[in-house]
Simulated scan of single mutants.
Amino acid sequence: MRHLGLAGFLFAFWLVLSGHYTPMLVAAGAVSAVLCVLAMIRGRVADAEGFPIELLSGAVTYFPWLLREIAKSAWAVTKIILHPNLPISPTMTVVRASQRTSTGVATYANSITLTPGTITVGVNGSELTVHALVSEGALDLEGGAMDRRVSQFEGRA
């Protein structure tokens, strides 16, 4: 089922990028998608981590939340940069990821990095070393709200 979903996703992506819907080109796109999946199966890269279809339901609520967090953080960082005194307090902190899979930990680390003012500088197992522009950003991460949202996205609410 995962391989069929991957082929369908690749075909839909091809259709969107192509913009041409003649029968020959649509058939070429379908054949290309199937051949790509077959090559991925043969190369042993078409696994659960490469196409995590089980995360689709969680993505419906997670990505809008993440976009909102990115916008809020971008506004806060903009205010800091434009402030005449530039009130920064760079901080390094270590947060523990409660996700159960490497995909979940990577999602958590990338979500931290996507949020302006914070960046994941290292991952050691389930411990993430994070640099924050202001100490409030580090305290917010230590509070665990993002960790809980990523765990919910991963299906572990």
Rank of each mutant, 00 (worst) to 15 (best):
L4C: 01
L6Y: 03
G8M: 11
F13L: 15
V16Y: 07
S18A: 14
S18N: 14
S18R: 10
H20M: 08
H20T: 05
Y21K: 07
M24E: 08
V26H: 09
V26T: 12
A27W: 06
A27V: 06
G29R: 02
A30R: 01
V31S: 09
V31N: 03
A33Q: 06
L35Y: 05
C36V: 12
L38P: 00
M40Y: 01
V45Q: 00
A46E: 03
E49N: 06
F51G: 00
F51H: 01
I53H: 02
E54H: 13
G58W: 11
A59N: 07
T61M: 03
P64T: 12
P64C: 07
R68N: 08
I70M: 14
I70T: 06
A71K: 10
K72P: 00
A74H: 12
V77L: 12
K79P: 00
I80E: 04
H83Y: 09
N85V: 11
I88T: 13
P90T: 11
T93G: 12
V95M: 09
S98Y: 13
S102R: 15
Y108E: 02
T113N: 07
L114W: 14
T120L: 09
G125N: 11
H131T: 06
A132E: 06
A132V: 05
L133Y: 05
V134N: 05
S135T: 15
E136G: 13
D140S: 13
D140C: 01
G143Y: 14
A145Q: 06
R148P: 02
E154F: 14
G155D: 12
A157D: 15
